[in-house]
Design a protein around this nucleic acid. Structure first.
Lengths: 234, 234
DNA sequence: ACAAAAGTGTTTAGCGTACACCCATGA
DNA sequence: TCATGGGTGTACGCTAAACACTTTTGT
């Protein structure tokens, strides 16, 4: 029967898939790796788990190092542990995905890391198994967003109905009827209509909404149906 | 910027939450731990990740060691990494949950481990954070089973409609209208009706069904609606 | 003949979808 | 005044839920 003695020890890392929405498309925040192996290759932001922190703590720290942000939506995705995934030394990586308001990142951008946003639909080759992580995260995002109001995490405090719909349409690579979409969204009472308009994208202007935080947190786990036929879109 | 050198290494383990259904209730397979610390305490079946195997491989191996079974439904649940979760030495544990046909286990039971089935509703205190893992697995099972036909993994090849309904009712701790239930289930064409009956639980007997494997694997990810108001049951 | 569990159909209400026109404004 | 994007209402079909009686057979 197994004992502790003589067991192999491994490096344990955390990698973050960071999503942002620029109003048009879903984007991915990547960095140029700063050390060997694969120095200067594109990579997810990551780091090793330190002795005093837990896994969520490590992910939060890493996200904060890059973006300067705290209180961001962050969720453990999956542990990756192929023996050779890191050619330097066996490393188990726990991947997390994060949803951030891209505008907030712009304000606090760190220049310690050479970070850049890439459209999710066209990002560069990445080191190790990081592309696998991203594809998995994309699937998980679609899956979860088809059931829960998770995409609001990507929007600024104030946003318009067309913006919200654009976001959903970009995530699912499709288009929805705007009448049905807004009716469904509003029927959840997740949104509060504000009195001012965004005049930047049309002549008429579009009313701003903000999240009803209470409703949002209390009913986060309820199943929504914003997406007509989600089966085939995931 | 972070380098590999000087980083701490940790033990990496896999723990399996193993569910089985005895026709009445959902059960959990636990073992008496065979080594210190916490020797002879109840525990999930687990083991350390070996140098040549990946995480899924480790989980499969561990499940096989205990049950003698292969090809079992197995899904990564979550990585646990609190610094002190194992008092002996820092160990990152990747938890998996497995769904097995309890009858198959009985045939192949291993006596290397002191294993026992416990009702999910009343299981003993477990070592470390294993109870947290179980509660999480229970939630995940409910969540997933409300959308996908995952519970069939717990049933034998041939099963009856009342058996299936009992299973769902036990998982969600509620009861369903049998007319609506069977109609919904049959409408998916996931089941094939057989010609023989189970005569053991009633005088009339209940027809056996088996899974339509093709339908099952092809449409596994489609969303089902066997459960009336899942929101409040998860 | 009776008890115990299996099996089966219909009605109704609410939800989800499809669909088209008016509004407000800046140019 | 016209072009552009924003905003809104209705009709219909389908699905999901509620609900009760008949069948089988062992005792």
């Amino acid at each position: 029967m197994t004992q502790y003695k003589g067991q192999e020890h491994y490096l344990v890392a955390v990698d973050c898939i960071i999503f942002g929405f620029d109003g048009e498309h879903l984007n991915l925040l990547l960095i140029k790796r700063g050390f060997e192996p694969k120095k200067n290759k594109w990579s997810l932001m990551g780091g090793f788990v330190q002795p005093t922190e837990d896994l969520d703590g490590a992910a939060k720290r890493i996200l904060h190092q890059l973006t300067g942000l705290k209180g961001v939506y962050l969720e453990q995705l999956k542990a990756f542990g192929q023996p050779k995934r890191d050619p330097e030394e066996r490393t188990i990586s726990i991947s997390y995905f994060a949803l951030i308001d891209i505008n907030q990142y712009k304000e606090k951008i760190s220049d310690t890391y050479a970070a850049e946003w890439f459209p999710l639909k066209k990002y560069p080759k990445l080191i190790f198994d990081h592309d696998k992580m991203i594809e998995l995260a994309k699937g998980r995002l679609r899956y979860k967003a088809s059931l829960h109001p998770i995409l609001f995490e990507l929007l600024p405090e104030k946003f318009t109905m067309p913006q919200l719909q654009n976001l959903y349409e970009d995530v699912y690579d499709t288009s929805f009827d705007k009448r049905n979409f807004s009716r469904k969204v509003l029927s959840t009472s997740l949104l509060v209509k504000l009195n001012d308009k965004d005049m930047s994208t049309s002549k008429k202007g579009a009313f701003y909404y903000k999240l009803n935080k209470k409703q949002y947190t209390e009913n986060f786990h309820s199943f929504l149906k914003f997406i007509p036929n989600p089966d085939h879109l995931l």
